[in-house]
Amino acid sequence: MSEVVLTGVVKRYGPVTALDGVDLTVPAGALTAVLGPSGCGKTTLLRCLAGFERLDAGTIRVHGLQVAGPGRHLPAHRRRIAVVPQEGALFPHLTVAANVAYGLDRAARHGDRVDEVLALVGLAGYGDRMPHQLSGGQQQRVAVARALAPRPSLVLLDEPFSALDAGLRAGLRHDIREALRADGATAVLVTHDQGEALSVADRVVVLRSGRVVQSGSPTALYREPADQWVAGFVGDAVLLPAVAADGAARTPLGVLPISGATPDGPVTVLVRPEQLRLTPASTDAAVTATVLRHDFHGHDALIALRLADGTRVTARIWDEADPAPVGAEVAVHVEGRARAWPAPPSPAPVDTPALPVG
């Protein structure tokens, strides 16, 4: 198993700096997800790791071997790094077994490795089939098996589930994760899907404008985001203006305890939608809201609310809850602590990205 270390990696395309001093460690035997919006440098990072692009500065080491850096660029075919592209890119004229065996030497092709990796990805017995006889999800499984077959130092997955139906993605990505773990592979998954990164990765790295803004476990990123932007990008977020004093913040949702060392004064606070609890409105309710909309997702629902002062927030309720009808008045209280950051110096609203539904 191989630890991958990037130090001060810079890549430019003319006047555009795609990677701007990236420092990153990919632990051996782990799946690391690189997450970020379009144009943040995710694909460039993958291409630099694979050896498809030369660095303008910095170094990349795989298992202690420098594969890129000042005066050195090890060609892609010598790095022992496998790439799983978005749509598999299988050879249409070769059987499944021949596709998987493509990168193996002659001795390995006649051994058990092809059958072993096909079993790992859930395709035991599919070796004689042709790619056109497989579903899209099965073709991606073959692509992962082909990547694992030569026991590479690193497996790179370039948004491998993005072309699949939503119903296939969740099951497939967990099966692929288990196959990588069973084979002891070190892997990097490039994705813009927050749910995908949080659900399958051991470690998540958030890129913005070619820089790493935070890295850590999925739990740490969700519970302790580095700033308001990360808070809004990694999961659903309720971001509110507030004033902090003595470990609490006065917000449109009432006075909330805040975590961490936050100086007194104007702040932006974060609460997650699942922290909001809704109960029938009563005369002694401290904070009330009007229900504007229900977004039902089966296992849970997001409830859009308008507070009495006009502030809009979102609450998450679970399937056992009976949501109040649209137009109803409810009481709102917050469970747990809020996270806070000093407010931006200008009165402009906090810039957070649009969040996908679901």
Rank of each mutant, 00 (worst) to 15 (best):
T311I: 05
A124F: 01
R250L: 08
D264V: 08
A201K: 02
V117C: 03
G260L: 09
A57N: 00
P218A: 10
A244E: 12
D322H: 15
G41D: 13
R47V: 06
G64Y: 13
R113N: 03
T32R: 09
P27R: 13
Q138D: 02
L240C: 02
V83M: 10
V9I: 11
V26Q: 11
Q139Y: 11
A76K: 06
G247E: 12
L189D: 03
M1E: 02
R109W: 04
F91W: 14
H297W: 03
R141Q: 12
A331Y: 07
P257D: 10
G260S: 13
T262Q: 10
L270Y: 01
V267L: 05
V114T: 12
P252I: 00
L118V: 01
V10C: 03
G232Y: 05
G358L: 08
A281L: 08
P92W: 08
A286T: 13
T17W: 04
A143S: 10
A261M: 06
L74K: 04
A281Y: 07
V291W: 10
A30S: 14
R339D: 03
A147R: 03
Q138N: 13
V212G: 10
D115P: 05
H93T: 14
R312P: 01
L302H: 03
S215Y: 05
V204R: 14
T44N: 12
T283N: 12
L276E: 00
V100I: 02
L256P: 03
A107H: 13
L49G: 05
D309R: 00
H299E: 12
G36N: 04
H299P: 15
L276H: 06
A244L: 01
V230I: 13
L168M: 08
P263T: 09
V190R: 00
A30C: 04
H132C: 07
L90W: 11
R306V: 03
L239E: 05
T59H: 09
S2Q: 07
D105S: 01
A340C: 08
D23V: 15
L270C: 10
A286C: 09
T32I: 07
H132Y: 12
L239D: 00
T290V: 12
L278E: 12
P75W: 06
T59I: 11
V243H: 02
L74Q: 08
D165N: 11
P273W: 03
A50V: 06
R293Q: 01
A30I: 12
D309W: 06
A354K: 04
M1I: 10
R181S: 05
V205W: 11
I258A: 09
E335S: 14
D227E: 15
A301C: 14
L55P: 01
D319A: 07
R306G: 02
S282F: 04
V4R: 09
G88Q: 01
T314E: 14
L24E: 08
V234N: 07
A248N: 02
G127T: 00
G64E: 10
P152R: 07
S259E: 14
M1N: 05
Q228L: 10
T314S: 11
L118A: 01
A244K: 13
P75R: 04
R129D: 03
A249C: 13
A301N: 09
I176G: 02
D20F: 05
G8N: 10
V83F: 04
S215Q: 15
V144Y: 13
P70S: 07
A101F: 05
Q214F: 00
R151P: 09
